[in-house]
Design a protein around this nucleic acid. Structure first.
Lengths: 121, 121
DNA sequence: CGCCGGGCTTACTTTTTGGTAAGTTATTGC
DNA sequence: GCAATAACTTACCAAAAAGTAAGCCCGGCG
């Protein structure tokens, strides 16, 4: 067992998954891996089905873990921009693999995913 | 949204994670990626903290998804052996990456994981 | 004979995760 | 002046994942 920040992990894999686990983080990171300077609603609108509550939550955790960063553009009308960090980018082989594997699996089951997938691939 | 076997997925990544998500599957697969012909309790004893209920459940799902296979050696005293399948093995770059990333992260935070890690690395 | 180990099953509870929906502040556009 | 948009916050609720603990069948061992 590994102890880190008051949490316990069974192994290093567990540690990595603590950053990117959950239903949306990998999708958010994949999106920010392709697009720069994204606003909150731009991200939201490209994640079919996510609730704002979830998005806020995941963005906060990703920021805390330094995989993404948030720039506040203005306060009076509150406007922000999100970008992936180098640390976040270093995970991109993972996203690639997970996505390729999924696409391949779908193909073998008669589902072609390539169309309309410029986003969160 | 992708529909497959009465379930919906947001993207291919989601599909892949449906096979290997959860707290224990990757650890089980990593273990079987290294060791052949493992009995139930051999696996259990190398997964610190897993309950038998969880192990049974995860093994069943991994078998159903054809990432591992189970040989029944004898019925009267019930004895079995688990092995990873080629499909399961094809995921090993993923385990490697997740593990390396975790180990590296731990190193940067002053925790050295290498010792006593012939198992579930 | 009684206990131990292997490979489970079952019932019950807790924790974690995710979803719904409404409300907030402030600006732009008609 | 009213609606829409951006970027959230809050409260409440349901479902899914995981944990706890006990029990079962069978054979080997002392």
């Amino acid at each position: 067992m590994i102890k880190l920040n008051n949490k316990t992990y069974t192994c290093p894999v567990d540690v990595t998954l603590s950053f990117i686990g959950g239903k949306w983080k990998i999708l958010i990171l994949s999106h920010l891996n392709i697009f720069n300077d994204r606003g909150f609603s731009e991200i939201r609108d490209n994640l079919p089905g996510i609730s704002e509550k979830m998005l806020v939550q995941q963005l906060k955790e990703l920021e805390r873990d330094q995989l993404i960063e948030k720039k506040v553009l203005s306060l009076k009308p509150y406007r922000v921009q999100y970008n992936i960090t180098p640390t976040g980018k270093s995970l991109s082989p993972l996203f690639e693999f997970l996505s390729e594997y999924g696409i391949n699996y779908l193909k073998e089951h008669g589902i072609d995913y390539m169309k309309d997938q410029q986003l969160y691939k």
